[in-house]
Design a protein around this nucleic acid. Structure first.
Length: 233
DNA sequence: GCCCAGGTGGGTA
DNA sequence: TACCCACATGGG
């Protein structure tokens, strides 16, 4: 892409951020008391509504099971019952076991020490853990460890696609590159931006809103569910 | 009853 | 590489 094009992307991404922040305000993500609670939430929220994740985390707290050591010790079937409200409970119990095992073996459960590792080194290690894909790895790097890594989810992907910046099926790294190559590496801003995109997606293009509020705000449709014309061109 | 929500892993062509 | 499917609850 040309230099002029890069500038346009940067201005577009900053402009969208400003519009979203002005409309919705700060989202105060990630809602968790500890680094580990945040990591657990990142796994539990995979393809699940956050309200259900909260129930599961409340169960873990009530059972005193919200620590890497407790997760390793509790039988997987018991863990599955605790995370039941989050859905995919057997699969997620196994994933939490894998995460806790990794944290113990690699860092002795010292998650503050974990922040000292370069994200470029940490990311492939996280991806090697069962149940941690690209989005979950970046959730952990950004929100739990404070690294300047931009999180890409389905809404973010659709957003850039609707802006005409990436093709329909761009790889995760390409979408992420648009943000990280053009925005200063600011964990606070990255975290707020991702939260705002998720927040925005909740009000955009619902069946109950035939006139899409989100499309009006951004001059585009982030979900792509409603044809709002050719505004992305 | 249907659709969707802050995805990932495993199998197949 | 590119699909396809299993994994599952709870709210609108």
């Amino acid at each position: 892409m040309s230099e002029r094009g890069e500038t346009r992307v940067k201005q577009t991404l900053l402009d969208i951020y400003d519009r979203l922040l002005g409309r919705y305000g700060r989202q105060h993500w990630w809602p968790a008391e500890t680094r580990f609670e945040m990591m657990v939430g990142a796994v539990l929220t995979q393809a699940a509504a956050w309200t259900n994740v909260e129930r599961a985390i409340d169960n873990l707290k009530a059972a005193a099971a919200l620590s890497p050591d407790a997760i390793r010790r509790i039988p997987q079937d018991d863990l599955a019952q605790l995370v039941y409200p989050a859905g995919y409970y057997n699969a997620k119990a196994r994933k939490l076991k894998a995460l806790a095992t990794y944290l113990g073996e690699s860092f002795g459960d010292d998650l503050d020490a974990m922040t000292q590792v370069e994200p470029g080194l940490l990311r492939p290690r996280l991806l090697a853990v069962h149940g941690i894909g690209e989005e979950t790895a970046d959730d952990i790097l950004l929100y739990a460890l404070g690294k300047p890594v931009f999180v890409i989810d389905a809404f973010t992907r659709r957003l850039l696609n609707r802006l005409g910046l990436v093709p329909d099926r761009g790889p995760y790294s390409a979408i992420q590159g648009y943000f990280m190559d053009d925005l200063a590496p600011d964990p606070e801003m990255y975290g707020e931006y991702h939260a705002l995109i998720v927040r925005h997606a909740k009000v955009a293009c619902r069946k109950s809103r035939p006139v899409c509020e989100g499309c009006v705000l951004l001059d585009i449709c982030p979900t792509g569910k409603v044809n709002m014309g050719e505004s992305e061109d």
